[in-house]
Design a binder for these strands. Structure first.
Lengths: 174, 174
DNA sequence: TATTGTTATACTCTATAACTATA
DNA sequence: TATAGTTATAGAGTATAACAATA
């Protein structure tokens, strides 16, 4: 670690210790300090990296991570009402409307009438949506495999339980 | 503002819409299906939970995770130029301006003149910024301890190496 | 009265292009 | 020409309030 002169002048005493020509620290050499011991920061960076790869893998289908998650929940729970799908994914009702609108416009999702409650919709995949999901799941498996290749299968498997436990932290707190 | 919600115009009484006759489920019972085997989805949910707790812990100081990360990098690398701080955190130059503006307005960060390059600024914490960071780091440690309590110290420690490896995935691409 | 879906709105975060002043 | 900081702008993502239809 550390690369070049760590100019440890205290704040307020800027005497300009930079010899000209001395390479100013570039991004890669910057010390993140205590940030490397903050799990939230690491989680964020890891999630961004994974989503970037996911985005690239699904670019041909123009499907974003949130859309894949919506389609997956509908596929796994056919007939679930709109509000329940959004709630399961942590998406507010108001924001969920436009997302379903787009998936419906693209012919992937249907808003079927709910038999017992005329206020709500029963969401289902269309035939095309079902066919697409088979492709998307295959792509997702290959995307997942890239992560396995990067950290090893055992380490990969060991991540799920703690991440789920963390995700549940402070769950019933409004 | 009259919006005339004239929805439900079609599909009068299509009682057989649910091909499988799937029972309606409530939110808590929703099966996430393959989503629970997608690391990216778990990472996102875990990161959101951690950030929510972080946000609550820092609410009294009106400091968000991104601001804490900026202040930490400046504290660890005093005199670093503005662009390098943003780059180290994956923040675009254009978006970084307003963030530093706010921290400067609040008296936490100074834009000192860079001795060798009059185009750039050397970022440093003010005395108040330095004092605040001592408080924030203490809060961050307590926040971190909550995660340790939730998953155990050994599991907690085992998360860092794989998360860093994942964060570096596809680093030199684009 | 409470809910389900909806519209409107606002605020944050992110991404790109173009400008300025320096180099 | 290239770089550092800036401005303007646009797109996602997320949050709340209020409304119509229905329960």
């Amino acid at each position: 670690m550390g690369a070049m002169a760590s100019r440890r002048s205290k704040a307020g005493d800027n005497e300009g210790a930079n010899e000209e020509g001395a390479p100013v620290r570039d991004g890669a050499a910057v010390d993140h300090g205590p940030l490397d011991r903050r799990l939230g920061y690491l989680l964020r960076r890891a999630q961004i990296a994974v989503f970037r790869d996911f985005f690239a893998a699904f670019a041909d289908h123009d499907i974003r991570p949130g859309q894949y998650s919506i389609l997956t929940v509908i596929e796994t729970n056919p007939g679930l009402k709109q509000g329940a799908v959004g709630e399961a994914l942590g998406i507010k009702r108001a924001n969920f409307v436009a997302m379903i609108d787009e998936l419906q416009t693209r012919g992937l999702v249907r808003r079927d009438p709910s038999p017992a409650d005329r206020r709500s919709y029963a969401l289902n995949l269309t035939a095309e949506g079902t066919r697409l999901m088979a492709e998307l799941h295959a792509l997702a498996e290959r995307h997942e495999q890239k992560i396995v290749d990067a950290i090893g299968l055992e380490t990969y498997r060991a991540l799920f339980a703690p991440l789920k436990a963390i995700a549940r932290m402070g769950e019933g707190e409004a």
